[in-house]
Amino acid sequence: MELDDLKNTWSQYDKMLADNLRLNEELLRKLNLNSSKREMQKVLVYELINIVTAVLVIIFTLWLSVYYINLLRFCIPGFITIAVSAVYLILGIIRTKGLLNIDYYGSPVVKVQTEILTLKRKTLHLRKYELILLPLLLLPLLPLLFKFVHNIDIYKELSLLVFEVVLITGLAYPLLMWTYKHFYDKKFKNAENLLAELDKFKNEE
C-alpha cells in the first residue's frame, strides 16, 4: 500500500463527510463562545495574580519600612524584601509580555508552537530562580511582620530568630529544590525536547 492508495481512501472518506456531516447550529449558538479554558489563558491569569501580589507586597513593605525608618534592623530587611519582590515583579512582567506577544491567530503552526514552547521553557527556567529567591523574600520579611503584627522584636527573641532562620534555610530550600526537580524539571526537559523536534521539523530539507 502506498500514500496514493491512502489518498484514494481519503477522497472517498472526504466525499462521505461532504454528504453526511451535520452541523448542530442550535448547539453552536448555545455554546458559550467566550469560555475558552485554553492553557495559555490560565497561565496568563496566574501571571497577572503574581504581578498583583508582587505589587501589593512592595507597597505594604515599603509602607512598613518607612514606618520603621528609625529602626534600621527592621527597615533594612524591609528594603531587601522590596528588592526581591521587585525581581518577582520584573520576572512576572517578562512572562506576561511574552504571553501577550504570541500571535496565536495569525501565524503559521510551526511559528506559534515554537513561540509557545520557547516561552514555556523560559517560564520554567525563571521559576527556578523564583524558588531560590523565595526564602530571601521571607527571611527579611518575617522580623518586620512579627514587629508589626505582634509587636515582637525578633532580634531580642533569639530562639525565635534561630527557629526562623533554621526553618527557612534548613527546610524550605531543600523542599523548594525538591519541588523544582519533581514538578518543573521534567516539564523543562520536555519543552526542550519538543523545541528540538520543532527545530528539526522546520530546518531539515
Binding site: 462521505m16 453526511n20 456531516l21 451535520r22 452541523l23 448542530n24 448547539l27 479554558k37
Partner: peptide, 17 residues
C-alpha cells in the same frame, strides 16, 4: 477534566454513515 462538555458533538456524521 476541566470543561463542561456538550453531550453531543456539534459536528457529527449521521448514524448509518
Amino acid at each position: 477534566k476541566n470543561r463542561d462538555s456538550a453531550d453531543v458533538s456539534i459536528i457529527s456524521v449521521s448514524g448509518t454513515d
